[in-house]
Design a protein around this nucleic acid. Structure first.
Ligand SMILES: [Mn+2]
Ligand SMILES: [Mn+2]
Ligand SMILES: [Zn+2]
Ligand SMILES: [Zn+2]
Lengths: 124, 124
DNA sequence: ATGAGAATAGTATTCGTTCCTATTTTCACA
DNA sequence: TGTGAAAATAGGAACGAATACTATTCTCAT
């Protein structure tokens, strides 16, 4: 794994926000620093950073992936009107996980919770 | 809303299985009954059936949507090796929902839980 | 039976993402 | 510090799930 300017810039950008940006938002930001960086590079780096556990990829209703530079254990709530994604604590505990394993026979490795609703602004 | 043969066939098919099929699997099955049904029609009908609450659309890791003809409240566990999706009961209760609403200020309308792991067969 | 308009078939198009490859860049090692 | 092998990138082509378009067919209230 080589240290390239592209890798550092992409990582910095995805860590700089809690808005859970799309790949092309990251791309646009990165172009401000490396004008000729390519979108393919952004995708490849985001994918690799995810494999390394530094970035998490979300699927939030829309067809575009969104990326999270804060990979700690937490979950998300998505505004159905404006698309905003906020962080929420995980409400699933060890007991629930064990219950699912017993019921299904699956060995659980991870889980994901997505809440949907209206953000405070969109309720007005 | 008109009763067409296509609509009835698609609904029957998506209700006939618990495998949470993709749109093109539904399409292939439907062609056995209506050989010249079009894929666009299948997509449109699945979308409309979802709006009516008769079908639920899942996003399970892969980029293809999968559809569930059993719309009752339940959740899913996805095998990370073979892609099989099984039903599981919902472990999120009213208290957890209220806690999320208080913490975020969002008005929650729904939630989704996805478990990931290895199915019994793939553990061998 | 008929006509308005809802729905479909067939096809083109969109667009997020992945793939390809010639060129550039990194870095272990001399 | 110089060199070379291999890793990474830029730019563009390709892919594919899903949607859009439209002439035609079908449904059903009247
Ligand atoms: Mn987050
Ligand atoms: Mn199900
Ligand atoms: Zn909102
Ligand atoms: Zn499996």
């Amino acid at each position: 794994m080589r240290k390239t300017k592209q890798r550092q810039v992409v990582l910095d950008i995805v860590r700089s926000t809690d808005a859970h940006p799309t790949a092309d938002w990251v791309y646009e930001q990165a172009r401000k620093v490396i004008p000729n960086i390519s979108l393919g590079t952004v995708y490849r780096l985001l994918g690799r950073l995810q494999e390394e556990g530094l970035v998490v990829q979300l699927e939030a209703g829309s067809r575009k992936s969104r990326f999270d530079g804060q990979p700690g254990p937490h979950q998300h709530i998505v505004c159905e009107r404006c698309g905003r994604i906020a962080d929420v604590p995980d409400v699933v505990d060890r007991a629930a996980t064990e219950r699912i394993e017993q019921l299904t026979g699956y060995r659980v490795s991870t889980h994901r919770v997505e809440w949907f609703g209206l953000c405070p602004k969109c309720q007005e």
